[in-house]
Amino acid sequence: MKFTKMISAVFAAAAMTLTMAGCGNGESGSTPANSNAQSNTSETSSASGSFRTVDQIKESGEIKIGVFSDKNPFGYVDNDGKYQGYDVYFAERIAKDLDVKLTLVPVEAAARVEFLETAKVDIVLANFTVTDERKQKVDFAPAYMKVALGVVSPDSAIIKSVDDLKGKTLIVVKGTTAETYFTENAPDVKLQKYDEYNEAYSALQDGRGNAFSTDNTEVLAWAKSNPGFTVGIESLGSADAIAPAVTKGNETLLKWLTDEITALGEEQFFHKDYDETLADVYGADETYKENLVVEGGKMDTSSETASNSDKSASA
């Protein structure tokens, strides 16, 4: 019995590596069905779920875009069953400009990369933070949003800067960028760590800490629906880029998206997107807007340090 258990454990491990770790090292001998001769990224993903070029998408008359279906206000389904949100608004524009029908595919954070690697969607627009690790597996277009850290605190003692936190207790969630940032940059802030977001919020409400820090999109939205709390620091640390992603090697679509984002920058499309989808939550305040929106793919904050973030899951 022990023997068979061992065998099966080996099988299981092998299968898991195969699927979970992705095949960025091209361990499978299978070759892509289509010949993307112009691709220089031959050492990467030999995904045989063949991606579709812009021409193929236009020809089929349909584009498949992966979005979140439960991440209000970026990608969610409203009470009438319709997709809404910042990402969805952009997806609709993409379909319109390609002159094709839009099919939205609900994706989960943990499967976004796989959906692209197997070309089950053409584009992922799901609050996808650009990281070095992900760049190995998918190709990112220029950013259309950015996210940095935010700090929320009670109105009675608003924390407005990292200096305000000296000697005080800051609540963080384990494994988030906030934990890393404060550990490295503000050793004199006492960190109180929790496993779950809802635990962290309860701790803040109970006054177990002086403030709570995580992605600014998250704390801004939370403060909005929790009177008595204010986001005193709206943008801290280096901003992470949020960008559309395509299957690795899909150069025509990547180029099209790059051109599209540049063109949309000229008409300030994402400001309009913000007004339509995010203003309800984050307010029409210009500073909020500038903290989140990126036009024409140009991030003013240096984005190269985005790599130390390890937020595989939410925004």
Partner: peptide, 19 residues
């Protein structure tokens, strides 16, 4: 193997390996 892993294998893995 958790069913979740099986879902990945069949939905993504099969496409990856066989198309």
């Amino acid at each position: 193997m958790p069913q979740l892993v099986w879902l990945f294998i069949v939905f993504f893995g099969v496409t990856r390996l066989t198309g």
